[in-house]
């Protein structure tokens, strides 16, 4: 039982990170029907920027008060990835809008390779470490087995990740459901031509969607860095594939679907590693995806048809 609870906590933490990245995939897909393969790398960039800014603030400038440091790191990382997301959309995707469907997809893969190689060359291929910054936690429960006592820990870091994710996802859901920007985004998703006829600046709305996804990926990047303490140029690919899987599992184009999918993929991965073998954790996640898609082709919360104009 204790072991189960511990895995549950770990799974929710990992799933939160996947969920935040998955939102970027699902929103961009929803609005322009394209899989932004470079999105995982934006997460990676977010982690690297976070690390650089963190080291700059603490080692070079000598800031010591951690909450303020982390806040600045977060803001800088979000600004940077947002600018990057906006630029990529502007330069690489917008000119291809209206051409055949595969064109932006190929460009996206190209952008992903460019980013990975850029970071690999400038930062080196080795992993970059960051010593744990937020230590400690609370004991959730305790139990004894014949092997000794098991302590179920919820670390402060995990708490921060889960709470931050909850707050962001709530804010985001409200933004999409209640604000005029969110309405404009949904309008573009459902009928871009009509949205323009009602005065919506479609290009700007699409840009903002990229920016929002990128900002959330930066948050995920910082949390990943703080949780695992090591990053390299390749984390964007792995996390990107997982988050993409999460988005498809939940139903691509659906916001709650992305969150649910993220949590599920995180849980599957952690439980599989905990109860079976670590080696096959990715196989488990992808197998479940395949099985779900056989029975629910549009994912768990996806809309059965996506009418495209």
């Amino acid at each position: 039982m204790e072991y189960f609870v511990q895995q549950l906590i770990n799974g929710l933490t990992l799933g939160s990170i996947y969920g935040l990245i998955a939102i970027g995939y699902t929103m961009v897909y929803g609005i322009i029907g394209m899989i932004n393969f470079a999105h995982g790398d934006i997460f990676m960039i977010g982690a690297f920027i976070s690390l650089a800014v963190f080291l700059l603030l603490t080692s070079v400038l000598g800031f010591a008060f951690l909450p303020v440091v982390l806040l600045i790191v977060l803001i800088v990382a979000m600004l940077f990835t947002s600018a990057w997301g906006w630029t990529v959309e502007r330069l690489a995707y917008r000119p291809l809008r209206g051409s055949f469907r595969l064109a932006p997809l190929i460009t996206a893969i190209g952008m992903s390779i460019v980013l990975q190689n850029f970071v690999q060359i400038t930062q080196g291929a080795r992993v970059k470490p960051l010593p744990p910054q937020i230590r400690g936690g609370i004991t959730v429960m305790q139990g004894s087995t014949e092997a000794g006592t098991i302590v179920v820990q919820l670390s402060y870091m995990q708490m921060i990740i889960i709470v931050t994710t909850l707050v962001l996802m709530t804010a985001f859901t409200l933004l999409i459901a209640r604000t005029s920007l969110g309405r404009a985004q949904r309008a573009c998703e459902q009928d871009r031509k009509m949205a323009a006829l009602l005065g919506v600046n479609v290009d700007r709305t699409i840009s903002l969607t990229f920016v929002m996804g990128a900002a959330l990926a930066a948050v995920a990047g910082l949390m990943f860095l703080l949780l695992y303490g090591v990053i390299d140029f390749y984390i964007g690919f792995l996390a990107g594939v997982k988050a993409f899987t999460a988005a498809v599992l939940g139903g691509i184009g659906s916001l709650p679907g992305a969150m649910l999918g993220g949590l599920l993929i995180g849980l599957i991965e952690v439980f599989w590693s905990g109860y079976f073998t670590v080696e096959y954790k990715d196989v488990a996640a992808f197998s479940i995806l395949a099985i779900v898609l056989i029975f629910l082709p549009s994912g768990l919360l996806g809309k059965p048809e996506v009418e495209k104009v």
């Binding site: 309405r183 404009a184 949904r186 309008a187 459902q190 009509m194 949205a195 809309k303």
Partner: peptide, 22 residues
């Protein structure tokens, strides 16, 4: 427009709000 182009997954209210965007 021709074909009405109602946003199918928005409520009537939201469709009207879209109309009032400007």
């Amino acid at each position: 427009p021709e074909g009405r182009r109602i946003f199918p997954r928005m409520t009537v209210m939201e469709n009207l709000q879209m109309g009032a965007s400007l």
